[in-house]
Design a protein around this nucleic acid. Structure first.
Lengths: 171, 171
DNA sequence: GTATTTCCGAGTAATTTAGTCAAGTTAAAG
DNA sequence: CTTTAACTTGACTAAATTACTCGGAAATAC
């Protein structure tokens, strides 16, 4: 018998390239935000992410309170909180619009005793993934990036071919 | 600075409903395999998975050495190994045909010092997920199912709406 | 007012998944 | 040896989802 971790899952999170782009962009903001707001055009050039797409992503990041925007010339984005207080799970949940599901990933047929065969398994996996991403702060990613020998920070993995699609993840 | 777990990842695994159907079907085989092979028609009826789809799934499970097939009248499928030696990751890798990627999810632009900003993060997450699923045996899922009050085992979660798509997972 | 930059929502193309279908092959039963 | 249940295979399709683009509106500095 497997010892299931407690499943505190409520929402389901998805892991897509969108989330990965968002994390990369947030690292970029954290790295280059020295007083002046960072513009999306800069991020686009450095990280090779299209401006249009960044606009879409940062709209969600802003609405979820992860960045503050400054409009007009000289504007751009600042982190809304200290990077140590922003977790990867925060970023992914912001851009991937998790569906607020009920237990069992929003499905029926899975309550009381007639619980589905794999309910615990997936719920527990979701919880594991979420807990892991929650434990990684933007600060730690920034520190990791700064520690690299070559601080050019220009070349970034092209996420688009890495394998994409989502997974329901406990939140 | 985040303390990255060692990334032993080689292949990338996907988490889809296909993998979940496969796990459910394998539990069904383990539960009802008492001497006689279990037919796909039975599994289809019990777990509400289309016969055609099961054929597709079991073809892969058989080619990956997880089940043995018995043809002809009275035929069906048996587990090829003891359920304690089959892990959930084995099942998912069998049906989801993981691409054997190089480091960094098969991408260029991510080697030596010009390593991408989030390489460690995703590789490590992949390793976490894989390790977790590797640690869950079919036996534990069977024990869990048997422990339920209502052993009818007919009603299973309809995976099709749960949220699907894949994630690259370290293997 | 004009340049810059964010803001917003609709729309679309490509990819991927999930599942079907049809035409076999195999082997046991009688 | 004929029937028949069951597995085998691969091509095919439809739906869903993702990953974007596009056009313009609003705000702010100069």
């Amino acid at each position: 018998m497997h010892n299931w971790p407690k499943e505190s899952a409520k929402k389901s999170m998805k892991l897509t390239t969108k989330g990965r782009f968002a994390v990369t962009a947030m690292i970029d903001v954290a790295l280059f935000n020295h007083g002046e707001p960072v513009t999306l055009a800069e991020i686009s050039a450095r990280q090779k992410i299209s401006l249009s797409y960044l606009e879409q992503l940062f709209g969600k990041l802003r609405r979820h309170g992860l960045v503050d925007s400054v409009r007009g010339p000289g504007g751009g984005y600042n982190l809304a909180k200290a990077p140590g207080t922003i977790s990867v799970s925060d970023i992914i949940l912001a851009v991937d619009e998790p569906i607020d599901t009920t237990s069992c990933g929003g499905e029926k047929n899975c309550h009381d005793d007639s619980i589905c065969l794999t309910h615990h398994l997936w719920a527990s996996l979701n919880a594991h993934i979420f807990t892991y991403l929650q434990g990684v702060s933007l600060q730690s990613l920034v520190d990791d990036a700064k520690a690299r020998k070559n601080p050019s920070l220009h070349v970034v993995q092209d996420l688009r071919k890495t394998g994409t699609r989502a997974v329901p993840i406990a939140a």
